[in-house]
Design a protein around this nucleic acid. Sequence first.
DNA 1: TGGTGTGAACAACTTCACAGCG
DNA 2: CGCTGTGAAGTTGTTCACACCA
Lengths: 209, 209
Amino acid sequence: MKAARVPAATITRLSLYARALERLKAEQVKVISSEKLAELCRVNPAQIRKDLAYFVEFGVRGVGYFVGELLFEIRRILGLNRTWNLAVVGLGNLGTALVTHENFLQQGYYFVAAFDVDPRKIGFKLPSGLAVSPVSEIVPLCRERKAEIGVVATPAGQAQAVVSQLAEVPIRAVLNFAPVQVEAPEGVLIENVDFTVKLDHLAYHLTGR
Amino acid sequence: MKAARVPAATITRLSLYARALERLKAEQVKVISSEKLAELCRVNPAQIRKDLAYFVEFGVRGVGYFVGELLFEIRRILGLNRTWNLAVVGLGNLGTALVTHENFLQQGYYFVAAFDVDPRKIGFKLPSGLAVSPVSEIVPLCRERKAEIGVVATPAGQAQAVVSQLAEVPIRAVLNFAPVQVEAPEGVLIENVDFTVKLDHLAYHLTGR
DNA sequence: TGGTGTGAACAACTTCACAGCG
DNA sequence: CGCTGTGAAGTTGTTCACACCA
């Protein structure tokens, strides 16, 4: 195959495959079949082959995929063969935890700016050494530091305004932790991380009859 | 309609509807049409009517839905007309932020137990007054305090073992923040909150041509 | 032989379009 | 008349099944 429109779900799974392949690589596994990888990622083997077929075509029939090669290729597809600059807005418990969260760094995501409305937090040095700036500085500072992805960890009421600010930078990708459906400005992709919704789902599961 | 199997996506949206309705109720709005609600939640109006039709049937033709009544009903469906006891495992930056996160409380989710492997953290009093216990205490303490939902915020390597422990309690619902696809023990529903995956999606978006 | 690549069948979910009711 | 409730159509994504190749 090749090209065609790629389902969002495929991209999500690609990310899971990459993660599994990293583990396999660390374990010195050289080759893996779609069946084995499917088991690790808890998906259907045909699904993996379909997903990969959108982009690559170097599985070896009768053998499988070369772990290193496949990992490299998936990371290239996702754009993980470089680093990305993040700007976080909102340094409450969650925002602060995110900046400090080492997984981001490991994966090549760097926080280059941090913003809050609370005057008492301005100037505060985060563990990484990054200082908190006022939200009024979002546009100039994000431009100066070349922030590419926004991370919104404000209360729900402020999220929309913050996203609009970020869009002005312009920042074209936002990870939103605020519990609202924010309107995405033209050309901006918003991914919501909404654990209240997930908790509700669990409550429903426990309640459901 | 009534009954039939309800799509998972419907439950997710129900949660969004509830959130929007809460805002509307606070604003004294009494009645809302599927079209208006759809706008707030950024979904299709027919979708809302379909979703609701799985459960209720009291929209008023030519008028819409009564906000208070609909909110009450959705909350009942999701199981939010009561409180839920949570147990968190892993009190790194993220786990600690979650326990302290006020949104949970507002929505009726209470942390009743907290666990970590790090001996230096055991006995530490969280801001809520909750003390950290060793993971070896998961089963007895969760039973004693009637924990119903597990929140896993450990490193990836420990998540599977923790989920198995929780399943033994038995806890039948888990919110997993660890970046792994954990195998769900029989009867346990796992919801993953995976922001690395979402970030990768954003990176892909920014890269894609 | 064994596992990929893929058309075709299938399943799930979404949107349309309109009858019917308040 | 306007908006709900819903069958039917449409769309999207998943799984099967097997030809094909190392």
